[in-house]
Design a protein around this nucleic acid. Structure first.
Lengths: 188, 188
DNA sequence: CCAGAATGGAACACTGATGTTCCGAAAAAG
DNA sequence: CTTTTTCGGAACATCAGTGTTCCATTCTGG
């Protein structure tokens, strides 16, 4: 928005707070702001200096999440290759979002339709990607795009939870996710 | 535990509170107890008379969830038929748990290992069911039982969310869930 | 109908999170 | 080194949820 004038110091502090917030609030959405400040190695006063109310921090988090989501979607090049291949790439990119994933999924920051459109990951591109898959025979036509969307999010979330519970490697979790999603969406 | 002596009236009131709590807390785990009391058509004082602290209500909820989970698992007869067929039946039964599903999944009441063993849905029977599927060729041997467990929970949760978001029927959501899970676990 | 059980509302104290103010210390900029 | 910016701690008021007590009312079984 307004990048007009912000000292390097302030920019770094602000980012440190946002990063810490993502980490802390992903694990406990109801965590006190004091915990966030502590995680950012910043006084609670300072946090309030940047984000007067909790809602302001949430807004910043939402913006950050939308931005990272948009970048990940771009990297996936959802317009290329078969539908199934594109879905696979998208999952790989989204997987790397890590904590941001939990934040979005937990709907702590429920993204509005307007937010989603900014990512271009849903509305236009996503639907187009799935329908391409429907036509090229790599995606089960019985499964609507919106359901596949839900599917991907829940599986990614399950994967990260699985890492925490079972102590498996990120790589192994991603392997399971991709294999499961591929099987779920492929034509039988 | 101690069913010893509880007037019919008290039993009904207690159950009404538990039912209301499941409904309210499934949607908002941090909901005030006043909301729960209101949903149960009961004074906040009365609620505290049955469950002195919030933790006491949570404990009752956990017990209720474990019980319903156990019943659903029993109905699924996970020991019968092929592995894939058993998984399908289990999903159908779990799907009907509705709000209880959200409660468990949101880990508001994180079930301990001891709780899980009571349901017999995880440890023994569940693993046995999956491994049977591994051997009879109906379940992908690449997917460990614990992952399939995660898969099922996340998909069921996604299904209920989907109903709320997209306004589809329960029946349609269950269809999508079953189709997706079947594809995800089946051998390629 | 009557006594005991069950309930609901009001009032209260307590707690933890929030948001604000103020001031001195530390850091960065010049 | 001096000025300006940035920061952190302490103190404070506020607020919402919690848990408790007390009492009047309603319900229920006998």
């Amino acid at each position: 928005m307004t990048d007009i004038q912000e000292s390097g110091s302030r920019t770094r502090t602000r980012q440190a707070i946002v990063d810490a917030a993502i980490e802390v609030l992903a694990r406990n959405p109801a965590a006190p702001l004091g915990d966030v400040a502590a995680a950012a190695n910043v006084g609670r006063t300072t946090l309030h200096r940047y984000f007067a109310e909790r809602a302001d921090l949430s807004a910043a988090l939402r913006a950050e999440a939308v931005d990272r989501l948009r970048q990940a979607t771009e990297r996936a090049c959802v317009a290329d290759g078969t539908g199934a291949a594109a879905i696979r790439r998208l999952c790989q990119e989204y997987f790397d979002l890590g904590d941001v994933l939990s934040l979005i999924f937990n709907e702590q920051l429920l993204l509005t339709d307007a937010d989603w459109q900014q990512t271009a990951g849903c509305d236009a591109e996503f639907v187009e990607m799935v329908e391409r898959g429907h036509h090229d025979g790599t995606v089960d036509p019985e499964l609507p795009a919106s359901w596949i969307q839900s599917l991907i999010w829940s599986q990614l979330y399950a994967g990260w939870s699985y890492i925490g519970e079972q102590g498996v490697s990120r790589h192994e979790a991603l392997r399971l996710i991709l294999r499961s999603i591929e099987g779920a969406v492929s034509v039988r």
